[in-house]
């Protein structure tokens, strides 16, 4: 198991442009969406990091931008890291991770239909939970639907 500082040093060695967030229970790293795939691929492949288990993939709408959030764990070393990537809200695009972690295939489809993030090179980017003709991105903050949505 690698401590927080050691992990931070390792990630900086892979990509010097990565910024880190202070505090939080897990190590949070921000990376440019164009470099995100390369970084995650390296994190997955390097022996002393070996982040082979993606236990959560999701997105957060911050009204000015979208943030992709990847929670990764190594089943060998048991360390955890959170990689985040800020996407443009008008044209959100990021490379798919579905060939690195197979679980990402369905999770990315879910994020695509709920947030409208396009995953480049995704093998099968279709709607998953909603019907095909559904319009809009329901989990975005400005989504309005007077018929189906119950305001509490």
């Amino acid at each position: 198991m690698m401590e927080r500082e050691a992990l931070q040093a390792q990630i900086t060695a892979i990509n010097a442009n990565v910024t880190f967030e202070e505090g939080g229970e897990m190590l949070n790293a921000f990376v440019d969406p164009k470099e995100c795939r390369d970084l995650l691929q390296t994190l997955h492949n390097m022996d002393d990091l070996a982040f082979d288990y993606m236990f959560c993939l999701t997105c957060v709408d911050w009204k000015t931008h979208l943030t992709m959030v990847y929670h990764l764990e190594s089943t060998k070393h048991r360390h955890v890291v959170v990689i985040k990537s800020k996407l443009d809200r008008e044209n959100p695009e990021i490379d798919t991770m579905s060939d690195i972690w197979r679980t990402a295939e369905l999770l990315e489809r879910e994020v695509y239909e709920l947030f409208g993030v396009r995953f480049i090179n995704h093998p099968d980017l279709r709607k998953l939970l909603l019907s095909d003709e559904w319009e809009g991105w329901p989990l975005r903050k400005d989504y309005e639907d007077p018929i189906n949505m119950i305001k509490l």
Binding site: D52, F55, R102, T103
Partner: peptide
Amino acid sequence: KEDAISYGCS
């Protein structure tokens, strides 16, 4: 084992 981890099985 490898596939189970990759698919995020738990």
